[in-house]
Design a binder for these strands. Sequence first.
DNA 1: CCCGGTTTGTAGTGGTCACTGCGAAACCAT
DNA 2: ATGGTTTCGCAGTGACCACTACAAACCGGG
Lengths: 184, 184
Amino acid sequence: MGYRHTKDDILAGALAAALDDGLSQLTFGRLAKRLGVSDRVVVYYFPSKDDLIGEVLLGLGTQLQIALAPAFATPAANHVEMLRAAWPVLARSEHDPVFALFFEAGGLAAAGREPYRSLVPQLVTAWVEWAAGLIVGTPARRRDEAAAAIATIDGLLLFRQLAGSKAADQAARRILAGGASARG
Amino acid sequence: MGYRHTKDDILAGALAAALDDGLSQLTFGRLAKRLGVSDRVVVYYFPSKDDLIGEVLLGLGTQLQIALAPAFATPAANHVEMLRAAWPVLARSEHDPVFALFFEAGGLAAAGREPYRSLVPQLVTAWVEWAAGLIVGTPARRRDEAAAAIATIDGLLLFRQLAGSKAADQAARRILAGGASARG
DNA sequence: CCCGGTTTGTAGTGGTCACTGCGAAACCAT
DNA sequence: ATGGTTTCGCAGTGACCACTACAAACCGGG
């Protein structure tokens, strides 16, 4: 019948715990209590904390793509249209723990803490290439618009996480209002 | 002749320590050792860790403006010109501990940890308004371009901190190359 | 030169952390 | 059922954290 806990059980619990309480609250002890087991069990499957974090970040990458896919699903001809398509995702991003967790991991990477410093750049690079792949419908000469849109979307995500919806809404409104009639 | 240490001494040391080693390494004990005193002295001036962090973040805000001022000093008529003016600052941002410290604080705020959750949004909002104030030379109807540029610059800063220069350079090159001849 | 408050050192407090030694229980093959 | 392996609980270990009790050193004003 197998044992009570598999590695996947614990990993899923770890990702859920991180989404609920943040990476800083993800400890062997707390995770074990959440799963109703001794922390020895967690350590058995993930011999070091870095092992656990590494796999949690992998899961976070998947969640990020799921969360952002709708933003790039609609084909868009230019910068402003891409932003408009992404808007529904951006607008609720501040309530999405996936983005909060991503920025927490990013902050730890910026602080130079391992294993984040090694792993987060791979995560971000993979995301950028994935996003670029989703917009292949864009003509080649519009690739610059796509690059600008991706950077802008990223900046607005940052505003929303760090400054709240007010600043982000203001910036987005100006971009959408100003660019609507101009270039097409 | 007064005492050996003033509050400003210790605060300056704390900001320097944070820039050197990150906020996560800023502890009473380590700061005291750096200053060559007992940790009791630090605690005397900053009764709680949050007091210390609050003032360090205030200092960080000033440093951020100093670091970013050259990016907005040149008047620019549109999105692409603004990005081009900001480029020298962006290009070296990954080696600037001020930006690393800012993203670390941002990550802690995204994780919901106090006092960052309360203080960082004020920091970012203040920065956005300050940046908007610097670009008053831009005609009113170009304000949307400015908003897009600020978000784009922010996104590129993020790329550089979290994904390294390669991804950021690629995105920026596309934006600058594609937009150079277009709108003016 | 002594008296008040201000500043600093010594030596802790209780808490949490990642991680471990060891033995027992659960499991599987035979 | 039995022997060996995998899984797990109990009870730690030492390190580090923010923060504190207490008393000594220091200072300017009288």
